[in-house]
Amino acid sequence: MCLLALCLPAAARADDSRTFFAMDTVMTVTVPGGSEALLSACEDEVRRLEALFSVTDESSEIARLNAEGRAVLSDETAALLGGALDAAALTDGALDVTLYPVVRAWGFTTGDYRVPDDGELAALLALVGWQQVTLEDGEASLPPGVMVDLGSVAKGFASDRLAALLRGSGVTSALIDLGGNIYCLGAKRNGSAWRIGVRDPDGSGEYIGVVAVTDKAVVTSGSYERFFVAKDGTVYGHIFDPATGRPAESGIVSATVIGPCGFQCDALTTALYVMGLERAEALLETLEGVDALLVDAEGELWATGGLRETFTPMGAYSAAAIHWIR
């Protein structure tokens, strides 16, 4: 098997792309024919946003808000926080940016993983609730102990910003990959749609299939991205259910959302993952302009009608029946 790989031709070198590390993940921006300066501008923009949103960087606006309970926010941070609160309302709290105290107790922020007991979780859950966040005229305030973390939506938001930056520079074709949060600007240079693989949640590195998209974001959430295994062998994923304060176990193991707004896709994938099939279906019925692809624990696929023409299942899923949601 290894010997076979030796015979393959060397992959073409991508000179017009840049890979860097920000927001705790690997990012690659590809602009066919793009200049170094343009790629640098993209990297700088992500780093600027990270410095505003980071929950661990003590000088960020969000860290100051968490520490002091009150802060005047920049336009970007206010827009992202406001959007996140709107998304919380839309998803009935399935996406909640005030989960931070709970996530921290589980050790997902530091890597010192542990399972908090019920009493501790109950106390922490009192601090969770997006309705507790006040945002008025760019000034946010939080009750004591409440903390926000925009990590679940920051990458989607950043991808929208990069797309706007590139469009403003006259770019008509680009691929923005912020740690698996994809934004496809325009089509490929040869005119064909971008082909985006959707990661198989079994962690094998294979794909469920490929979606063909132009001018759209493709975002996937699954617990396989970050998780820990407790001493008793239980696997705990990094996506939390705000209702229980525990890693969500809704029966959905991977949620992908495809739509024109990276932020919206990012927010919806997390929410759909937490909601479970029934609630996710109900929400998707009401949403226009976005498509979703869900994988349940039995490995069955659920998809919205917009994917009929654009989604091609592959590998272990190539013969899978797809349940169409609308």
């Binding site: 992959a11 691929l175 949060n181 490929k188 693989g197 590195g205 991205e225």
Partner: peptide
């Protein structure tokens, strides 16, 4: 290290 994509590989992977 795995081989970096043949003609059939997607342009990027979401997830």
């Amino acid at each position: 290290l795995v081989s970096g994509g043949d003609g059939d590989a997607p342009d990027a992977v979401s997830g």
